[in-house]
Design a protein around this nucleic acid. Structure first.
Lengths: 298, 298
DNA sequence: AGGACCGTCCTCAAATCAGAAACAATCAAA
DNA sequence: TTTGATTGTTTCTGATTTGAGGACGGTCCT
């Protein structure tokens, strides 16, 4: 016998001042209501209702139980309702970086959409910084060195940015051995990167910065990627873009002894007491997906 | 499937970090635990746990549900425990007036004692005013005009105090028709009454007070009653003492056109948020008994 | 590779539940 | 007073649900 049903039934009986009345109200049979109350009383070992053959009245214990059970039941209902899958409705505003999302996020989005079709996904792709509170963003995917400390941020995967070029290019122009040698090469500059013209490297705790000021400039990682594949030069690229090509040998990582940028992929959301179910579910889908599915880590 | 059991099981699973572990802890079978969790998830329509074949981890929704369900469950347990009949143990201090209790309260006391044998009843009979808070009284029976306003008081029955005498006495000395005529009669004075020597009457909104200063004086209602039966004179008596004799004709009410004292029988207790179960049960027993059983009201 | 362990599925006996009808007690109206 | 309606409980039956044990696919540790 479900305890919550028992309590709820008891409360209905009290409110309706009668077992038959409660039965009519709740749609159950008199029998069921009567038995339910009896069961509740038995499990508590206390009489909650005085019965005459004609009507019922509250026991002292019953009155106290009623008053105290009511708010608890309310809390439980609220919890249940807020968690219930039916709550996964409405709009879900997501902010995410362009190229990364096109390459790796869409699988999560589509899976989420299939599972929670009542959620209107609003995916805003941008590589600019977005104030998620101001913009009304529920959840954001970010690539950054350190996440915004005023928000909840959970790391999904590391993001390495490596210097690379095609085999054909390297064969023609040679492979630089130190960052400084990059100055003598065709460089492709992704102006989306924070410090596009200052290429930073690190070796044995020594920081090396090279100012690249000539070469093709573009603001799209995909464009950079294409140029790399077309043997146009050397560029800094996130592994999640060039990973496949590196694995297949089409592109090669150079300056491997030097550590390049080490960024992180984060999922970020506002620090509220209770996230909505749709948001929680999305966070969960993302977490799960990138636990198993970040093969660009290499 | 009991909702509370479901939630409790879910919490155990989370705490023990595994279904098998939870099963061992709670003594149930793995099957039962697994099905219970599945049932809870289904009823909510949301996955609470991520499962691998090897272990489990919380979903975002699951984590939120866990955190919010925990305090609710605690409240429910506390409520259940405080109401449970097992709580009807320990001492119950009752204060009550002497004669009334001897005549009418003992049936309630004995019934209560049989039903809740683990409660140590401590019945203090006294006709003096008792500060129930200072004296550590759980519940008091009082006869008064108006109950103490700092306490919770519930009226059990009206208490009429009537002037009466035996038929033999009235035959010998005559029946007074007005209060003033009482001065020429043998009066029996109960010194327990608040204003023992000032007998008050009311007729048509006119208050009449007669100062009785001669006659037998005693401090026991039973003694007064005995003297009345022995034809010793006229006295003011509560109907709960002389009711039977009046019904049987042994004693007669005189000055019937005049209203005499109208007091109330009250059950009184401290105004706490939560009375203990034993106290509630006692209050209930008293209320119930005097609803059906105050035939002295007449 | 083998063994221990985990969570789930399957099956079947046992427990539980829902609802109809019968029942005793009470009230309201004729 | 009698009749009929209503109330809460009890009894009975069929239907549903539950839970334990074993089997199964999968994973971790050695």
């Amino acid at each position: 016998m479900d305890t919550i049903t028992c309590i709820r039934t008891f409360i209905t009986v009290v409110d309706e001042q009668g077992i038959s009345a409660a039965a009519r109200k709740s749609g159950a049979s008199k029998t069921a209501v009567s038995k339910t109350i009896a069961h509740l009383e038995e499990s508590l070992g206390v009489r909650l209702l005085h019965r005459t053959t004609r009507n019922i009245s509250l026991t002292e214990v019953g009155r106290s139980y009623y008053e105290r059970a009511l708010p608890i039941l309310d809390q439980l209902c609220e919890l249940e309702a807020s968690v219930h899958v039916a709550q996964a409705v409405g709009d879900l505003h997501i902010s995410a970086p362009v190229t990364f999302s096109e390459l790796h996020l869409m699988k999560v989005i589509s899976g989420y959409n299939k599972r929670y079709p009542k959620v209107n996904i609003n995916l805003r792709l941008t590589d600019h910084f977005v104030d998620i509170v101001k913009e009304g963003i529920d959840v954001a995917i970010r690539i950054a060195e350190l996440p915004d400390s005023s928000l909840v941020a959970r790391k999904l995967a590391p993001v390495r940015i490596v210097a690379c070029a095609s085999g054909a290019y390297l064969q023609e122009y040679g492979t630089p051995k130190t960052p400084e040698e990059l100055l003598n090469h065709q460089c492709i500059i992704d102006t989306n990167l924070r410090s596009s013209f200052r290429w930073r490297f690190k070796r044995d705790d020594e920081h090396i910065t090279v100012n690249i000021d000539k070469g093709i400039r573009t603001n799209g990682s995909r464009a950079v990627h294409q140029l790399l594949r077309e043997d146009c030069g050397i560029s800094l690229c996130p592994t999640f873009v060039v990973g496949d090509d590196i694995k297949s040998g089409k592109l090669s990582v150079i300056l491997e002894g030097y550590e390049s940028y080490e960024l992180g992929l984060y999922i970020v959301y506002a620090n509220r007491k209770h996230l909505s179910t749709k948001t929680q579910c999305f966070i969960d889908a993302v977490l799960t997906h990138f636990e198993e599915n970040s093969d660009w880590k290499m």
